[in-house]
């Protein structure tokens, strides 16, 4: 009796604070200083992107040739480019563009990839073989090349970059989901769901998908970093955003012509890309460690 009485408070404490995978992970994430730093970077970037039209001191597109190529100063924190545009304002507006490409591209890739992965892993057989073969073909182009090939076919421009980034991200999601489904499918809760008469779509969306949500979240965060880097690379090569869009990669490409005269033109957009990619990577690594300590690389 005494033992039970001793245990009662402990049980009460446990009940008052429900512990789920997500709340545990959240606690672990907050303890990870690198991940918190990454998260703060991401939040600051999102705020900068949302408020750019309000806080940017100058118009990002309007030219003012009298103040061309000025070095950084109290008026122009990051200096001006050859058309006299304030680089700080352009970098702020660029945050909105890059985050939009990163988020939308990853969203498109994740949606299609997850769907294909679910179907592939769930049905197996010929469907699985066909889908995964197509993914193999997409993965046969190393790194950026698939995105370059797509943009070469459908033409440059922001919308097309988003499509290219989406297709480029898709195979990773398909593979990840298929792999997780294959192991989740064997478990007893699936048999139970089947026995009570759940249909295929319900089995996939209600029972299998929640089981693979954690790795999907980790991959998506990391893929946003890749997507932003890819989009900036395409724009740098002249295959993405076109002038006068204040896209970071395109700004850098402009800046290389004045590297000797005004190195700041190329410096700041590059730093912005670096900070953004760093933020998402740190956050993604932190999420992975928090959600599944076994996955640690």
């Amino acid at each position: 009796m005494k033992a039970a009485a001793d245990m009662a408070p402990a049980l009460a404490v446990d009940r008052s604070r429900p512990r789920s995978l997500w709340s545990d992970a959240w606690a672990r994430l907050l303890k990870n200083r690198a991940a918190v730093f990454g998260g703060v970077l991401v939040i600051v970037l999102i705020l900068a992107a949302l408020t750019a039209p309000l806080i940017a001191p100058f118009d990002p597109i309007k030219q003012d040739l009298r103040s061309s190529l000025q070095p950084p100063s109290p008026t122009h924190f990051f200096g001006t480019d050859v058309h006299g545009r304030d680089i700080f304002s352009r970098v702020l507006h660029g945050a909105a563009i890059s985050l939009r490409i990163g988020a939308l591209g990853t969203l498109i890739g994740a949606t299609i990839g997850i769907t294909l992965g679910l179907i592939s892993g769930f049905y197996g057989g010929l469907t699985d073989t066909l889908i995964m073969r197509v993914m193999d073909v997409l993965l046969a182009f190393p790194g950026l090349l698939l995105a370059i090939a797509i943009v070469a076919a459908i033409g440059p421009g922001l919308e097309n970059v988003i499509i290219a980034v989406g297709v480029f991200s898709m195979p990773e999601f398909a593979r990840l989901v298929r792999g997780s489904i294959l192991s989740a499918k064997q478990q007893e809760f699936m048999l139970a769901a089947r026995v009570v008469g759940a249909r295929d779509v319900r089995l996939m969306t209600q029972h299998l998908l929640p089981n693979v949500l954690a790795p999907i979240l980790v991959l998506a965060t990391l893929r946003i970093a890749t997507a932003i880097l890819t989009a900036a690379s395409l724009s740098f090569l002249g295959l993405g955003a076109q002038p006068p869009t204040p896209e970071w990669g395109a700004m850098l490409s402009d800046g290389r012509e004045y590297l000797m005269l005004a190195p700041h033109v190329a410096t700041f957009p590059g730093l912005a890309i670096l900070v953004t990619v760093l933020g998402f990577n740190l956050l993604g690594d932190g999420l992975r460690d928090a959600l599944d300590p076994r996955l640690r690389v």
Binding site: R256, A266, L278
Partner: peptide
Amino acid sequence: ALLGICTPSFWLGLMLML
């Protein structure tokens, strides 16, 4: 190493060139 992974190569190239 982390910075090496996050740095856009075209920017690093320009900075090294500079």
